[in-house]
Computed example of a mutant assay.
Amino acid sequence: MKAIVTKEFRDKYTKVLYIPGDIYEHQDEKRIKFLQEAKALGDTLAEDPPPSPKGDSAEPINLGGGWYQLPDGRKVRKSEIDGGEG
């Protein structure tokens, strides 16, 4: 779980100093609740969304130097994308 720090404190397990605005992360929900009751933490943050699958875009990605990566993972020259000859 993650929460925003609202009051400066030092974590008793890691000895890391947290200041207001930092994000505190701990796996134990009881620890988060304890720090929230002590007014050291604010509301919990939503978990990070899972990364989107690679290649969900229909557009080729410009890799620089005239090279592009297609959604299927192939690397091709721009002339091959445009359907041009050569």
Score class of each variant (00 low, 15 high):
Ser52Val: 12
Ile23Asn: 07
Glu25Asn: 08
Ile19Phe: 03
Gly73Ile: 09
Lys12Trp: 06
Ala3His: 06
Lys30Pro: 00
Glu47Ser: 15
Leu41Gly: 00
Ser57Arg: 14
Trp67Ile: 07
Asp11Lys: 04
Lys15Glu: 08
Gly86Met: 07
Arg31Asp: 12
Glu85Tyr: 09
Arg77Ser: 12
Asp56Ser: 14
Asp11Glu: 11
Ala46Arg: 12
Gly64Glu: 02
Leu70Arg: 00
Lys12Ser: 13
Pro50Gln: 13
Val5Leu: 04
Leu41Cys: 05
Leu35Val: 09
Lys39Arg: 12
Gly42Tyr: 04
Glu8Pro: 03
Leu41Asn: 00
Gly21Leu: 07
Ala40Gln: 12
Trp67Glu: 04
Pro50Ala: 14
Lys75Met: 10
Lys30Val: 13
Asn62His: 08
Lys7Pro: 02
Tyr18Trp: 12
Arg10Asp: 02
Ile4Trp: 01
Ile81Tyr: 05
Lys2Leu: 11
Val76Cys: 03
Lys30Asn: 15
Ala46Tyr: 04
Gly73His: 07
Pro51Gly: 09
Asp11Phe: 07
Tyr13Gly: 00
Gly65Ile: 05
Gln69Cys: 09
Lys2Asn: 11
Ala46Lys: 15
Asp11Cys: 12
Asp11Pro: 04
Gly84Lys: 15
Lys30His: 12
Lys75Thr: 14
Met1Asp: 08
Asp72His: 10
Pro20Met: 04
Gly66Leu: 06
Leu17Val: 14
Pro53Met: 08
Leu17Lys: 01
Tyr13Ala: 01
Ala46Gln: 11
Met1Ile: 10
Tyr13Phe: 09
Ala38Ser: 11
Asp56Ile: 08
Lys15Leu: 08
Val76Glu: 01
Ile32Arg: 00
Lys15Gln: 11
Thr6Met: 07
Asp28Trp: 03
Glu59Tyr: 12
Ala38Leu: 13
Ile61Phe: 10
Lys15Gly: 01
Leu45Ala: 06
Ala38Pro: 01
Glu29Met: 09
Lys7Gln: 14
Leu63Gln: 13
Lys30Gln: 11
Leu41Trp: 06
Gly55Asn: 10
Thr6Tyr: 02
Ser52Ala: 15
Val16Tyr: 06
Ile81His: 02
Pro53Ala: 11
Met1Ser: 13
Pro60Lys: 02
Gly86Pro: 04
Lys39Tyr: 07
Tyr68Thr: 02
Pro20Val: 10
Glu80Ala: 14
Gln69Ser: 09
Tyr68Met: 06
Gln69Ala: 12
Ile61Ser: 06
Asp22Gln: 04
Val16Cys: 01
Lys54His: 06
Pro49Ala: 13
Leu63Val: 05
Tyr18His: 15
Glu37Cys: 02
Gly65Trp: 02
Asp11Thr: 06
Met1Cys: 07
Ser57Glu: 13
Asn62Gln: 05
Gly65Arg: 09
Ile23His: 05
Lys12Pro: 01
Ile19Met: 08
Leu41Gln: 01
Thr6His: 02
Pro49Glu: 15
Gly64Arg: 07
Asp82Lys: 12
Leu63Asp: 08
Tyr13Gln: 05
Leu63Asn: 03
Arg74Met: 02
Val76Leu: 03
Leu35Gly: 00
Pro60Leu: 03
Arg10Leu: 02
Lys15Pro: 00
Glu37Asp: 15
Lys39Asp: 13
Lys2Phe: 09
Lys75Tyr: 05
Glu80Val: 10
Glu85Lys: 14
Tyr24Gln: 08
Val76Ser: 00
Gln27Tyr: 14
Glu37Met: 08
Ala40His: 15
Asp43Gly: 04
Lys75Asp: 02
